[in-house]
Design a protein around this nucleic acid. Structure first.
Lengths: 260, 260
DNA sequence: GACACGAGCTGGCTTGAGCCAGTTGCGGTA
DNA sequence: TACCGCAACTGGCTCAAGCCAGCTCGTGTC
C-alpha cells in the first residue's frame, strides 16, 4: 500500500509476514496451499533468506502455517473440532449406544477411534487434585489411571484419572486396565458412586515439551486443559481427571441450566 | 548428561533451550527471574549469538519466558487465573451484589476492574452466530455490541454480543452503550427474555494478529474463545456472545448437573 | 538536591554465507 | 516393467558480523 513514501516502519520480516497473512485471509492462499519457498520469498522481497525464514516463523507461531521438511510450507487446514459435551457423562447415552462419546465424535468425522489405558498405578495426588478430592496431598494415596485417545492412530488427547484408594478399594478400578462394558462410570456405579454433578475447570496454554512430542503437536497450537471432578448425590467428589487435548482438534460444548 | 560420547543429536539451539527449560522447571530459575543474556549464553555454549537467540525463541513459543527490549529475558510469572463460571448469569448474584462477576473476580485479585462498551451497531451476523440464533445469515440483521474488559487498565477479554433486531426492538439494548443497573441480562428480562439455560462452546487457539495487539498479548500465549448462547424458558435463543480472552489470565469454571 | 548526559548493558533485526537432511521426479539400467 | 540412483528442489540449523533501539546507572553539572 504505502511502499513508496519510505515510511513503512515495519521491519521486512513483519512486512512479509503481514503480506502472507493477508493472502491467507483473503483466500488467495487457500487452506492446504503451498507458500512460496523461503528462497523465492527472499528473492521476491530482496532480502536475505533468513529474513523470509523469520517471516514464516512468525506465521508458524500464530498457528497459520505448518512447515514440512523437504516439501514446503503449507497453510494449516482447519479440521473441524470434536466437540465434547457434558453428555459424555450421561448414563442414558452410556447404556444406549455402548459407545463412549469420544468414539461417537471421532466416528462422526469419518475417522477411527482408539483408546488405550497406558498405566494404572498408586501415587500421591498432585496438589490441585488432592484439593478437589478433599484429601491431604502429602499423606493421601490415589489410584492413577493414564488414558490416551486416538483418532486414526493420531493421539488427540490424554486423560489422567485420580481415584482415592478408599473409593477404588479392590475393584477393577484399582488395577485393571480394561474396565468392561459401560466403562469407568459404570464401575463407579457398581461401587455406589453415581455421578450427578460435574465440575469442569478449563484453561488453555501452550503444551509442555513432553506434551507437544507425546501428542505430536505442530508448533503454534495450544492445548486445552480440563480439570474434571465427578460428584455424587451425596456431594462426594469421588474422582478427578485431568484432560489435556490438542486445541486444533478438540473443543468443548456445554449446555446447562442457569441456577438460582 | 551425555556430553562426551559425542552422540548428542540435538542441535545446539535445542540443547540450550532444553537446559534452560530444565532450570526453569527445577526452580533454579524462579518465576520472574532473569535469564542469562543472549551474548552470555552464546559465550557459555560456544555458539553464535543467533543460536542462543533461537533457543530463547523456542522458549518464548512455549510461553515460558518473555523478552523485554533493553532489559532482558524473564521467566514468565504465572499469574492466577480469573475463573469465570456459569454463575455469571445468575439472577441472584446479579441482584445481591450489583456487581458483575467479572468485577468480583478482578477485585478478588486485588486489581481494579473496568469495562467499556466500544460500539453498538447494526450488522449482519457471522454464520455461526446466525446459526445459533436460528437466523438466516444472508438476510438477518442483528445488534452488535462490543465490550472490552480490563484489569488495572490492562485489557484481558473482549465480548461481542449479537442480538436479533426483533428481540432488541427499540430498547436500550439496540442503541445505548450503558445499560444501567443489573446490566445486560436485566434489560433482557425487561423485554421478557429470562435466561434459563446457556450453551457454551469453547475452543483455544493462537490469537489473530489484531487480537494479539488489541489485548497486548505476549508471544506464546493462546486465547480461549467462548461462543455463548442464552436460552429462555421457551427454548428461544435470544442472544449470542463471542468472548475472546487471554489464556494466561482467564479460565472457566463450570459446575453443572449431569442430565439423563 | 535535581537533572541531563552518556557509557555500557540489554534485546531486535538483518545480512550472506554454508552445510545438512528430507522429498520428488526423472532417467537409465537391469 | 520395476527399480535404483541422482539431481534439484524443499526446509533446518548455524555462523560471524553489524547496526539499531530501549534500559540503567553512574557521573558531573547547575
Amino acid at each position: 500500500m504505502d511502499e513508496q513514501s519510505g515510511t513503512d516502519r515495519r521491519p521486512p520480516s513483519r512486512r512479509i509476514a503481514d503480506d502472507l497473512r493477508a493472502s491467507i485471509r483473503s483466500g488467495e492462499l487457500a487452506s492446504g496451499a503451498k507458500l512460496p519457498s523461503e528462497r523465492e520469498l527472499a528473492g521476491r522481497y530482496g532480502t536475505a533468506r533468513n529474513t523470509a525464514r523469520e517471516a514464516i516463523s512468525i506465521l508458524q507461531g500464530e498457528g497459520l502455517v505448518v512447515a514440512q521438511h523437504g516439501r514446503g510450507v503449507f497453510v494449516r487446514p482447519r479440521t473441524p473440532l470434536m466437540r465434547l459435551g457434558a453428555n459424555r457423562y450421561s448414563r442414558q447415552l452410556r447404556s444406549e449406544t455402548g459407545l463412549s462419546p469420544f468414539r461417537i465424535e471421532v466416528t462422526k468425522q469419518g475417522r477411527t477411534p482408539k483408546t488405550e489405558c497406558r498405566s494404572v498405578t498408586r501415587d500421591k495426588p498432585p496438589a490441585d487434585v488432592a484439593d478437589r478430592l478433599g484429601l491431604d496431598a502429602s499423606t493421601a494415596t490415589v489410584i492413577r489411571r493414564e488414558n490416551w485417545y486416538y483418532a486414526d492412530d493420531e493421539p488427540v488427547q490424554v486423560g489422567v484419572t485420580y481415584i482415592p484408594v478408599d473409593v477404588a478399594g479392590e475393584s477393577p478400578l484399582a488395577s485393571e486396565r480394561t474396565l468392561g462394558k459401560g466403562s469407568i462410570y459404570a464401575r463407579f456405579e457398581d461401587l455406589g458412586y453415581r455421578i450427578t454433578r460435574i465440575r469442569e475447570e478449563i484453561s488453555a496454554r501452550m503444551p509442555y515439551h513432553e506434551e507437544s512430542t507425546g501428542l505430536s503437536m505442530p508448533p503454534g497450537v495450544p492445548v486445552i486443559e480440563v480439570l474434571h471432578t465427578s460428584i455424587d448425590e451425596q456431594h462426594r467428589a469421588f474422582e478427578v481427571t485431568r484432560f489435556v487435548m490438542r486445541g486444533d482438534l478438540n473443543g468443548l460444548d456445554y449446555e446447562m441450566p442457569v441456577e438460582d
